[in-house]
Write a protein that binds this DNA or RNA. Structure first.
Lengths: 192, 192
DNA sequence: GTCTATAGCTCGATAGAC
DNA sequence: GTCTATCGAGCTATAGAC
């Protein structure tokens, strides 16, 4: 199960990240993570003192992944409008995961808001990173006046699509909905 | 803690319903439910054999509540268009709960899809009850051609709004978003 | 129908040898 | 840094008295 080039700490974070996404935070035990990472149970108390510490590390990892995805959007095109549309296509690039487990940060936020209020803040910051990126790009595309509500609107639409696609496990709905979002956003971006 | 007119079984279901919503299914223990219902721990194994049985009963209860809400929409007005708009206003009627805990059926679906796949089906059926009601009402409002995708679209928008409102604990966003949905739907319903 | 006591298990976390 | 052994607590669930 071990992968080359990763130290034990990274192995644990990667294993926990996957299990938290697929089974939820509270339903994933230390034993599960240890088995997935191929590391003896007791050993990773050397790396993480508490389960909360692991979650914090996983959320930092996801935050970093989101930032890398935003960078990928910027590398995809020099046109900010195309960057925005490429972001929405994350729904298609991750369609299998979304169908089965929903949005990694949306479902994590929902879980943490119920029983781990103190830890939810870190997820909110991931959303805020996304929202600010959208805000900047929308302003650059000539929509400075409405960029703030629009950025929230885009995030809400993406979340709504992932929830419904997961509820019905319906990949066709997911694809149609992604296409619809692209058309809607294109209409706004190229209105003038 | 006991309320009049409810037998023990109903007391347990009501207590579990609240705790599952506020703390999540897997984070709610038998002891928590017993304490909330004011019923000794061991006793309610007489009413429910397993924790799954309690969840099944809670989901039936929520399904029933959704149906009662749809009936309330129909009693609110004789105009199907006004019934549809009244449904969307659930976002405002439940704003405090949504801010703190998200949508009861949306967040439950997300949790169950990760670790209790077999039980998620029952939540999907609640969504389908909602969707079919929307479908019928949209068709009655003269939108038979697009009623199916529109009903999914309405549900997705509602879910997206609840997720973001919960992520940011932002009641102003929730209200603005609800108003936006009403304007959007009004535009569609009264287009001709 | 109601309640107590407790079995049997898994959890997160610790101590300490190597 | 790595690993074994194990603790105490809390969990779901059961047995059986009343």
């Amino acid at each position: 199960m071990k992968q080359q080039g990763l130290n034990n700490k990274e192995l644990i974070v990667q294993a926990a990240d996957q299990l938290f996404y697929e089974h939820g935070y509270s339903q994933t035990s230390f034993s599960d993570i240890a088995a997935q990472a191929g590391i003896p149970r007791g050993n990773f108390y050397y790396y993480f003192k508490t389960k909360d510490d692991i979650l914090t590390a996983v959320l930092s990892f996801r935050h970093q992944q989101i930032e890398e995805m935003l960078t990928a959007c910027e590398q995809h095109s020099d046109d900010v409008k195309q960057q925005l549309i490429y972001l929405i296509e994350i729904l298609i690039r991750e369609e299998d995961n979304i169908i089965n487990y929903g949005c990694p940060i949306g479902t994590m936020s929902s879980e943490l808001s119920k029983s781990f209020t103190a830890l939810q803040q870190q997820v909110t910051e991931i959303f805020e990173t996304l929202r600010q990126w959208l805000d900047i790009k929308l302003a650059a595309a000539g929509l400075a006046d409405s960029s703030k509500p629009l950025s929230m609107d885009i995030l809400a639409r993406l979340q709504g699509t992932t929830v419904l696609a997961n509820v019905y496990h319906d990949i066709d709905f997911l694809r149609r909905s992604a296409q619809q979002h692209k058309l809607w956003l294109t209409g706004i971006l190229y209105a003038n």
